[in-house]
Design a protein around this nucleic acid. Structure first.
Lengths: 206, 206
DNA sequence: GTATGTGAAGTTATTCACAGCG
DNA sequence: CGCTGTGAATAACTTCACATAC
């Protein structure tokens, strides 16, 4: 399934959640496409890849489409997620209220700094790094978020894979090597700023 | 210029910085392609869109290519960046050491909480929200990072655009509307987790 | 021998446009 | 009449393969 399509599904879902909160019951592909930067045909095509969710003449029922998208994305269930690295960014994620209700639950954080162990942040316990494997086994977490310094990232990724983690959201700088079958998502803040920079300088030319 | 290409340029640059730090002087498109998940021809094609940087038979000189990519991405110069929202995530970004040396400098942070004003985090002053426009004028910042609650994001984006900001890196949930000519980048953490979730559930089927 | 840069081929993604349904 | 879902057309991106340069 095209990567770009799956990314857009998330965008649709985000917008639909917003519409639902505003009490809007029906939406057409045209309306939905106006919020996202995408054509109306693209919206219909993306959705049609997974089934027929709309009513000709009426559009889509917002709460139905939300339900379908959650099922498609696999967030109808709740995923238990382990946070590796309880630094500044880790703390911010522990306090982030947007995971609950979208299918993700931080079940524990680990950090190599033993002084942090035992504390609770955002309702989540911080535990020593040594407990990592046991936590994963015990909680059945299949997804991990990695917020550690660049130098430690690859080693910890290896440990996560070894412990059975199947998806890693990496906030560290380096591109990590993981075996086939383990999925990576990478948030590179500098790269995003570089995209903006590029657009600003190429605007001046073209 | 294809969006995907520009994203890959950032990935190449990151890898090249890594190679340079390790003291490696030359690299071929094949070697570079092995780190990133991309074909060797793709690397050559991407680079060739901007000029001829390689030596047939030898590959690319690492430091030269870094220099070229920085010039292309516009990060040879240093961009002054304003941070809007000094919450948990904002604090993490203020302390992030990866901006310096990659062409970005946080010149100030603003927050609507007056108790935070006057403090310094990571060497950057936090100032009251009211000063936003003056800071932008005074520092000539053209890029802003937005780390505020969802409800406030659109209003602040409007203020940023009004004050002359041309690129916004948005960490808030909603997709923001900005006029033509203003560039947006969106970091949606939940969306990344949803990508992982999708890959995990679709693996079980296919 | 090795590796670039690039036409040409191949593949994938997006848009068009319309039949068919509500 | 409005809007979906989709075959057909178009556009965009990627890979192949090789002439050329070191």
């Amino acid at each position: 399934m095209p990567d770009a399509t799956v990314r857009r599904l998330s965008a649709y879902l985000r917008q639909l959640e917003h519409l639902a909160a505003a009490g809007i019951a029906q939406v057409s592909s045209r309306q939905l496409s106006e919020y996202i930067r995408v054509g109306a045909a693209q919206v219909r095509r993306d959705l049609a890849l997974f089934g027929q969710f709309g009513q000709p003449g009426r559009g889509y029922v917002v709460v139905n489409l939300i339900d379908h998208l959650r099922r498609i994305l696999g967030t109808q269930q709740t995923w238990r997620v382990v946070l590796v690295g309880a630094g500044q960014l880790g703390h911010a994620l522990l306090r982030y209220p947007g995971f609950a209700g979208r299918g993700f639950e931080l079940v524990a954080a680990v950090d190599c700094d033993h002084r942090k162990a035992g504390k609770r942040v955002g309702g989540v316990a911080i535990r020593p790094l040594e407990d990592l494997e046991e936590i994963i086994r015990h909680t059945d977490a299949r997804i991990a978020i990695l917020t550690v310094p660049a130098a430690a990232a690859q080693d910890l990724a290896n440990r996560l894979v070894e412990a059975g983690i199947e998806g890693i959201l990496n906030f560290a700088t380096p591109v990590l090597e993981v075996p086939q079958g383990v999925h990576m998502a990478h948030v590179d803040i500098t790269a995003h700023l570089e995209q903006l920079s590029f657009r600003l300088v190429s605007n001046n030319i073209a």
